[in-house]
Structures are given as C-alpha cells and as structure tokens.
Amino acid sequence: MTQPVFPERPPMKTGAGVAAAQPLRIVVTDPIISRFEQELKYDGGAHHWVMASGWSAEDQLRALADADVVVCSALPPEQAAAAARLRLVHVTGAGYEKIAMDSLPPAAAVANAFHHARPIAEHVVMVTLMLSRRVLAADTELRRGQWRTIATSPDVPFHPTLDGMVLGLVGLGSIGAEVARLGAALGMRVRAVRGNPGAAHPEGVQPEWVGGTAELPKLLETSDVVVVTVPLSEETRGLIGAAELERMKPSALLVNVARGPVVDQAALYAALSERRIAGAGIDVWWGAPADGKVPPSEFPFERLDNAVLTPHHSGHARTTFERRAADIAANVARLAAGRPLFNVVREPR
C-alpha cells in the first residue's frame, strides 16, 4: 500500500500591502464525504486537503497533529487529543455524539451539516405506503405463485389512502418539518409534539396542533402513522416503550428515522409480533453490526412480515452529500477569512 504523504506547510504570503495569510491544513477522515473531493475544494483557496479516510490509525494521528480543520463523522478521544492546533471540527452529518468534545483543544469550534431531511421524508412516505398496502406480503405471495387480491381472497384488506390519515410527528426539527410538508401535500392531517411547543412553526408547516412532550400519549392515541425524528439524548432514550406502543391504534404504523434507542426494541418486537400495531419501518438500529449479526438487534425483526427494514440509509441521496460538502467548503472559507461560521454546535472556548 502506498505510504501517506505529509506535505509541508507553505511559507506565509507577505509583502507590501499583503496581510500575512496561511492556508489551512484540512484532514478528511470520513470515507463517504471523501468521494466528494471536488465539492469540498470548490472554494479554490490554497488550502492543503489531506484525504486520510483509508489511512491507518497511526497515520491519521500523525496527520491530525498538524491539522487546522478535521472533517469527520467521528473523532475519538485519542484523535481529538492529538490535534492540538485544531480550529474547526466539521462533522459530516447532523449527529455529533461521536465527537470527543472534552478532549478537543479549547480553540476548536465544532460544526455539523444537514441536507438529509428531504430524502428521509421521502423514505417515510415510501415505507408508509409499503406497509399500508401490504407490499412485502404481496410480493412474497406472488413470488410463491399465489395471486391474492380482494377479488380472490376475502381476507385480503382494501388499501387505505394517505389522504385523511393523521400523521403524528415526534419531533419537529428539519426532518419532522419536511415529513410534515410531504404528508400534508398528500392530504395527511399533521400533528406533532416537540420540546418547545410554543416555538414558531417551520416554514410551510401548518399542523392541526403541536403539543409538548407531555402530550405524547394524545399524539399516539390519535395518529395513524407515528414518525420518530427526535435526536437521541438521556431524555429521549426509550421514549417509545411498551406503555407508549400500547396507546397506539392496532391499525397504526410506527416509522423510526431518529436513532434506534429512542424506541425500546423489546417492546417494539412484542407489539409487532403480537399484531398490537399494524407495522413498523425501522431504518435506525440499536448499535452497529457486530459478529455477523445483521440486522443489529437482540430480536429477529427480519422474520416479521409487517416490518420494513433498511440499513440506516434513508438519507443517503447523492444530493445530501453534495450539499454537505458544499457547506463544509463554505465554512472552511469563512474560517480562513475570519468570518463567523454557521451550524456551530460548540463555540471555541
């Protein structure tokens, strides 16, 4: 394997009428955003981009020792501590729970990136239609040589349509808002709970009502489709458990595009296998695949015909990463120019 090259920093530009300026050294360790190198570099500044996603841990540590910026999805304590001159950690997604904040140098800001709301909202609509129209079951039956419709089998249910269904959103951030817009465009009646129910509604979102988290039971009892979009925290871990699932209609669907542990996996498996709710879309899991266990769960969700299972890919549209790369490049340009950054989740200390 070719050994990594560690270029020297160029000399600072000086001269009459020219302020001293030094290009930034940017280390990229995230393998997905590395595919968008052209978009990352669109600013055209004379920065030094070190594409280190395929490097060994030892070589990444060497590169980070001289980095002004690191672009990553995770930064463990040993890497954060090694990057003593960091000025910016730019996370490649919205979640920053894998950044060792306490190990960062005080001068380092942390920013994140978004642009995943639209593809995730489309995924929610797709899964809702698949579940409500028995796509998994019908596909399996047809492949087995069975032609089962309402015309041949009286036990096959009629399809519902989305118009008039109540869409219940647990969280009304960027993802929840985009799900609300798409749902409303399809005739769904939008309701939501959020941490601050009195906050202004997102642009283009006109829910029937928005309640606080204490009104979650009301939302669950009255919704036909419940979509979980809240970030994972100590307050939201296990937010949807056995008691909450018991409040849902037997005909209702649950779609989780937040984080796996927001929903109790044992309670969800029991509710699905016992048909106490009609179905679920699971895009987020309770850990990463380990020891060949796929999907990563303590329960055999893969055996259920009323669950649509996807490998945390609902936001993986190409536009998501093109736009994230452009945002990262824009923040790098702002840092180099001494201008305020956007999407900052930790200010320099």
Rank of each mutant, 00 (worst) to 15 (best):
G198P: 02
P160V: 13
H48K: 08
L304A: 10
A330R: 13
D66A: 15
L335D: 00
A16H: 11
F158K: 13
V5I: 13
I175W: 00
V226A: 03
M12K: 14
V308M: 14
L272C: 09
R143Y: 03
G315P: 03
E347P: 08
E221V: 09
I175T: 09
L253K: 11
P207V: 08
H115D: 11
R85E: 13
V125A: 11
G54V: 02
L272E: 14
F114Q: 14
E97C: 04
Q79R: 14
M101Q: 13
S314G: 07
R276L: 08
S132G: 12
V294L: 12
Q60E: 02
V257A: 00
V255P: 02
F299W: 15
V91C: 13
G93M: 14
D102V: 07
T320K: 07
V257Y: 00
P106H: 09
V263Q: 06
T320N: 12
G15Y: 02
A84D: 08
G279A: 00
V284H: 11
L216C: 05
L232M: 07
I150F: 08
I277C: 03
M126H: 11
V135R: 11
E78D: 15
L220T: 05
P202L: 11
Q206P: 03
E235F: 07
S251G: 07
L239M: 15
P250L: 08
V166E: 12
E221N: 09
Q206Y: 12
R194M: 01
L86P: 10
D102M: 06
L40A: 02
M130S: 12
V170P: 07
A266D: 15
A117D: 15
N112A: 06
W285E: 01
T236E: 03
L245A: 10
G287L: 02
V263A: 14
P296H: 05
R62L: 14
V190R: 09
K249I: 07
P105Y: 05
S103Q: 12
F158W: 12
A271M: 11
E78H: 15
I277Q: 01
T152Y: 12
L268S: 12
V135C: 09
T236Q: 08
D305E: 15
L239D: 04
K218C: 10
M165V: 03
A185Q: 04
Q3F: 08
N306Y: 05
S132K: 15
D66I: 03
T29K: 00
K249Y: 09
P7T: 01
F114S: 13
A20F: 13
T236S: 15
L219G: 06
V179W: 00
D43W: 14
S251A: 13
T14C: 09
Q265Y: 04
I120D: 01
A200C: 01
P119C: 03
A63F: 00
A121M: 03
D305M: 10
E244H: 04
V226I: 15
D283Y: 05
H115T: 05
V179S: 04
E141V: 01
A109Q: 05
V110G: 10
